[in-house]
Write a protein that binds this DNA or RNA. Structure first.
Lengths: 338, 338
DNA sequence: CTGTTAGCGCGTTCAG
DNA sequence: CTGAACGCGCTAACAG
């Protein structure tokens, strides 16, 4: 009732002392009890309980070759629910394989990513799952990583030949744009990330391909490609919708831009600005999309599945000892029309 | 270009060998270089680079008293964007203090929480931040935790006197309910968690207090208190709205229930079911609440701030060595009327 | 300024 | 079935 103040974690030796055995017997007992008499096991476990002893996992993984049971996960933006789901997917599969995840947020900052990765390796992670940032990626090259397997998610890194899980960005954007064209729109705006962001480039490519194929004009004035968060997206949408010749539809290349454009449309409706308001296609699902005041087509993909697939690729290499060459998995999207 | 296959992480000895110094000199160099000649440091750092050496953080923290730099975080539901934000808040503050977080998802399962906590302790975490589950909490008692500080967030655990960060559940729910009463509603339904969930009980209490104070009837038929996810919430909302005498307003005690009731209202509108549809008060903000087809009052609180506060409490104890008695911080909410 | 010794908590190996 | 010795990677304390 009182010894908790400043009390170190008890060690295996203290447990051994209390149980009247050697540390080795404690170790064996905790490892499953093979070759330890049941009554001795009893005494050991009693001592464990009484002392509140926990095995030191760090010391355990000190021995070379011993896995730490840790997977390092670095994400660009945990505040984006999409990546929250993603992290959950990784965590689930890791838990199924008896591993824990260490999680870091990079905020799209390559230097921060570098720090995180080196910390992860210093903690002897068994593997890494990354949504890579856009900058310099020298710290991800195999010679820097030693034999720690790496899986990339969402984005590929140029020149890095590792397991990767992607979403069908180009195809999804293409099909989404086509659905707008089929509905009769030709003046279609685009909101997304700048082209240096992998998905930004790929989704723009799908949009562009559909537009060109159908002979629809690509109008720079209604294209904005540098919004990372909701408020920037709102501002970009407002600028575009305020034009003399606004688009009749908008292709939004991700969740954050979609929320931004919907906010702006809501604002216009509340102010009584003249309709028609633009139809929207959103790459990425969002909650309550069915309640929006304009028709919304959703290009949906499963963030949690993305995380699960990434982790699955990692554990294939880790547990099945697969040394196969780098695989890329591209997850399909589904189009949900209003 | 080739040695990465199966290559162990290099050790301090190998670096020392390559640099022609003792391991101790390498250690000193990496620790800042005090008392090491600059030219020797150069050689050491060169060897570090060439070998791709990373300090083994686990071995480093083996020595008793040495912090591991890890904070264990267990969350009930990472798929809830609210807790994603929360985790980010903890991560941010941890990063500011040079720590990393290990993250686990409990899924409201006390056994899983127990596992996670014991793994965290086994990994020598410097501290714990938990959104506790509802079940048995013996594993959180001080004698089990040794001297690992624990901070609870969102919920308190009965009989556990530790630092806690809460949201003003009772006050928020009270004020939200009052806003409905002020708008003329008297038949107000309630959707939330069962009373064994801490926030579920507190938010219900605020609702109840407001209703009783104003003499509004508490009608069991329009109260549903066992929905953990969106689809269960939708079903509960449907059952209530299908009654002969449905409520004219609904108090939703959390994000998941709010999304559920909004979905159901959307469904009714699309089916042309007769209005008026119920007004809604939502405890927890959600994106695009301003675009809903019925008036929505939001009781808003900041999940990221909750996480930041929890981590701040933890590091106060950790870094400032504060041994003060357990503090409780209650974060205010803001009411945003439609 | 640099190296040696010792020991952190644990598990493998080998004796008994 | 149980224990002793050793070493894992690293660093505080103590030589030199």
């Amino acid at each position: 009732m009182s010894t908790s103040r400043g009390a170190r974690q008890p060690t295996i030796k203290e447990v051994a002392g209390r149980a009247g055995v050697s540390p080795m017997t404690v170790s064996r007992t905790l490892a499953g009890g093979r070759n330890v008499r049941p009554d001795v096991q009893e005494r050991v476990m009693a001592a464990v309980r009484e002392l509140g002893y926990y095995r030191n996992e760090n010391a355990r993984s000190l021995r070379p070759g011993q896995p730490s049971g840790l997977v390092g996960v670095a994400i660009t933006n945990l505040a984006n629910p999409y990546y929250g789901e993603f992290a959950l997917g990784v965590e689930e599969v890791a838990a199924e394989h008896g591993r824990r995840i260490i999680l870091g947020n990079t905020g799209e900052d390559a230097a921060r990513e570098r720090q995180l990765v080196s910390d992860f390796i210093g903690r002897q992670v068994d593997g890494l799952v990354l949504v890579p940032t856009t900058g310099d990626a020298a710290h991800l090259r195999p010679e820097r990583l030693g034999d720690v397997p790496l899986v990339l998610a969402s984005r590929r890194v140029p020149g890095l030949d590792v397991d990767t899980v992607l979403v069908d960005d180009v195809g999804g954007a293409y099909r989404g744009t086509v659905s707008l064209l089929d509905a009769g729109h030709t003046r279609i705006g685009f909101l997304g990330n700048r082209s240096s962001v992998f998905t930004g480039a790929r989704r723009y490519r799908g949009y562009e391909r559909a537009m060109l194929e159908r002979g629809a004009p690509i109008v720079p004035a209604i294209i904005a490609r540098d919004q990372q968060d909701v408020s920037a997206a709102s501002r970009a949408a407002r600028a575009i919708l305020d034009l003399d010749e606004p688009p009749t539809a908008i292709f939004s290349a991700n969740n954050r831009n979609t929320i931004g454009v919907m906010r702006e449309i809501g604002r216009r409706i509340r102010r009584g600005l003249p309709s028609p308001h633009p139809a929207v296609v959103s790459f990425d699902d969002f909650e309550l999309s069915e309640l929006m005041p304009v028709p919304v087509t959703v290009i949906d993909h499963d963030a949690r599945l993305l995380g699960r697939e990434a982790a699955t690729l990692l554990f294939a290499r880790l547990d099945d000892g697969s040394a196969a060459e780098a695989k890329t998995v591209e997850l399909p999207v589904t189009i949900e029309s209003p």
